[in-house]
Computed example of a mutant assay.
Amino acid sequence: MELNAIADKFSELGHKTRLTIFKQLVKAGSEGLPVGNLQQTLKIPGSTLSHHVSRLINVGLIKQHRDGRTLYCIAQYDALQDVINFLTDECCIDASE
């Protein structure tokens, strides 16, 4: 994955509120969480949550899905795996034996 894209993901996850949002969504699994539940759990105003969710969407870490009147936020595990792979794909290649 391109270095800039990984850096953008790290940048967004470097904010305490966004990292907390993302962690809650990872814990929720592939079905995600309704935005209202996320807001209630984190005890943050809707406008603040919307701002942070938008930033995570922009870098591909989460997506939103509407089911009727309920809007869900869903962690994108492929994007998370890209970040993990970036950190580990050259593990120990410069280590001496």
Rank of each mutant, 00 (worst) to 15 (best):
I57P: 01
L38W: 08
N58W: 11
L61C: 01
V35C: 05
T88L: 06
R66S: 11
K27T: 11
D89A: 11
R69M: 10
L19T: 04
L38E: 09
A28H: 00
P34T: 10
L38N: 10
G32I: 04
S54N: 14
D67I: 07
S30Y: 06
R18V: 07
I21R: 03
R55P: 01
E31G: 15
Y72D: 02
V59Y: 08
L38M: 08
N58G: 15
L80V: 10
V26P: 00
G46Y: 11
L87P: 01
L49N: 07
I62P: 02
K63R: 08
I57V: 13
N37Y: 09
D94C: 05
Q76I: 05
L38R: 11
Y77L: 10
K63Y: 01
D67N: 05
N37H: 12
A95S: 08
H51F: 14
Q39V: 04
C73I: 02
K23P: 00
C73M: 03
N85G: 02
Q64G: 10
D89Q: 14
A95G: 02
E31C: 13
R55V: 02
S47V: 06
A28W: 00
F22Q: 06
T48P: 06
Q64H: 10
R66W: 05
Q24K: 12
K23Y: 09
H52M: 08
K16E: 09
R55K: 15
F22Y: 11
T20R: 14
T48F: 12
I93R: 12
T41R: 15
I84G: 01
V35I: 15
V59S: 09
S54R: 14
C91F: 13
Y72N: 07
S54E: 12
H51R: 15
Q39G: 02
I93G: 03
Q40D: 07
N37G: 11
